[in-house]
Computed example of a mutant assay.
Amino acid sequence: MKKKLGLVSLTLVTASVLAACGGGSDKTASKEKPKTLVISTFGLEEDKMQEDVFKPFEKKYNVNIVLETGTSSERLTKLKSNPNSTVDVIELSQSNAADGVSAGLFEKVDTSKVPNMENLIDSAKELSADGSGPAYTLNSIGIVYNKKTAGKEIKEWDDLWDSSLKGKVSIPDITTTFGPAMLYVANNHKNTEAKTINGKTAFEGITGLAPNVVKTYSKSSDLANMFQSGEIAAAVVGDFAVPIITGSNPDVAYIVPASGTYANFNTININKNSKNKDLAYKYINWRLSQEVQEKTAVSLNEAPTNKKVVLNEETAKNKTYGDVAKRTNKVDSNLVNKNLASWINQWNRILNN
């Protein structure tokens, strides 16, 4: 974290004067130099992350945190290309984390060093059963739309295909956290009886949606400007970004279709080549703690994975929690990763040419 040079200099001068006068203490003189922990994370709401997650951890454990930010896929690709990077812990979407595990990038988690893993909800425990990094939040997708410019009330996924929304819709790019979930949505639009995704059927659905899609996006934070400028009237988005989008425009509403939604866990893994594994374990345990998750549920719109955290009705709004959590469907991360290269090519031919 950034330190103010003037304050540091003043502290050193004061310490020197006290020492010269016999007023210095052995405890002050022997205080250890802060260790450095490099965290690769999403670049969303960084000010609030600093306040509720990073700075309290730095203070408690005498640490300087250095951040690497970007999309989940960008940061995983970077780590793949340089496994000896200085990154100690990395926060990723579920499918990217599964890819990293398959590539052998991560430390197998020793649960005895993360006591808060015992407090995880059952679905999060299942995700870490093979030694993968634990999930610190659960999110899912819904639809945000401008009630004045959409031309109709939007209630279900199928409404996105309505001709009244031609050139008015934005969806997450295939390479983002929820890009593959769009294929599930498109698949079910064509075949509501589908139990799993069929690539051919899914891309038939995407082809049908294409006239309505004015832009795909990589960063959900960009949607606020797109709504504000009138560039779009509706979008598919992860619930973690809803406050950013709806807060800037009172005409924009968020709905989760009654037919269900698609879920994603964000997870934390340790780079197997990290030189700070003990400190990395402390950070993971911190991120899973009741204390931190109660704060981030409010400030970062993160649904908790620690079952000791209980949200009131206002805090639970726009989160994958309660009734919404019960309506979530899984995206098969292994299936996605197996087919992603082919799917990206098909996606780009249809939407990005």
Score class of each variant (00 low, 15 high):
196 T>G: 10
63 V>E: 11
184 Y>E: 13
305 T>L: 10
130 D>F: 01
30 S>R: 11
31 K>E: 15
3 K>F: 15
295 K>R: 13
82 N>S: 13
46 E>A: 06
257 P>V: 09
75 R>Q: 14
223 L>S: 07
60 K>E: 15
83 P>T: 04
220 S>G: 15
66 V>D: 03
256 V>L: 05
248 S>F: 01
46 E>M: 15
42 F>R: 01
197 I>Q: 12
17 V>Y: 04
105 L>D: 11
159 D>W: 04
280 A>F: 05
130 D>S: 11
222 D>C: 04
10 L>K: 12
320 T>H: 01
330 K>Y: 06
182 M>R: 07
226 M>E: 15
149 T>N: 09
129 A>H: 04
62 N>H: 07
343 W>K: 05
99 D>H: 06
305 T>Y: 08
120 L>T: 07
169 V>N: 05
27 K>T: 15
65 I>L: 08
292 V>H: 03
267 T>P: 00
281 Y>K: 05
315 T>Q: 14
123 S>E: 14
187 N>K: 11
293 Q>K: 10
119 N>I: 00
230 G>H: 12
332 D>E: 11
179 G>Q: 06
304 P>K: 10
134 P>M: 02
296 T>G: 02
28 T>I: 12
19 A>K: 14
64 N>R: 06
291 E>Q: 13
146 N>S: 06
1 M>Y: 05
292 V>C: 04
318 N>R: 00
335 L>N: 03
205 G>K: 03
263 A>W: 02
185 V>F: 01
149 T>P: 11
136 Y>S: 02
296 T>D: 03
126 E>P: 01
236 V>F: 12
71 T>M: 10
132 S>I: 00
115 P>A: 05
154 I>Y: 03
12 L>K: 07
87 V>T: 14
205 G>Q: 08
83 P>W: 03
129 A>C: 02
309 V>R: 09
343 W>A: 09
151 G>D: 12
49 M>A: 08
336 V>S: 09
105 L>P: 10
173 D>N: 15
59 K>N: 12
56 P>H: 04
330 K>T: 11
83 P>V: 08
217 Y>Q: 07
230 G>R: 09
49 M>Y: 11
184 Y>Q: 11
224 A>H: 01
350 I>E: 11
93 S>E: 03
41 T>L: 05
1 M>N: 08
112 S>F: 01
76 L>N: 01
240 F>V: 14
168 K>I: 01
261 T>R: 02
26 D>M: 06
341 A>W: 00
340 L>N: 08
213 V>G: 09
102 S>N: 14
160 L>T: 11
43 G>L: 06
235 A>W: 10
48 K>R: 12
198 N>R: 07
115 P>N: 06
236 V>P: 07
145 Y>L: 10
104 G>I: 04
130 D>T: 06
317 K>E: 12
309 V>G: 07
319 K>G: 02
7 L>G: 10
65 I>P: 03
16 S>G: 15
308 K>P: 01
243 P>E: 03
171 I>A: 00
197 I>H: 00
212 N>E: 10
62 N>L: 09
208 G>Y: 02
198 N>H: 09
292 V>T: 14
123 S>K: 12
2 K>Q: 13
178 F>H: 11
198 N>P: 04
149 T>Q: 08
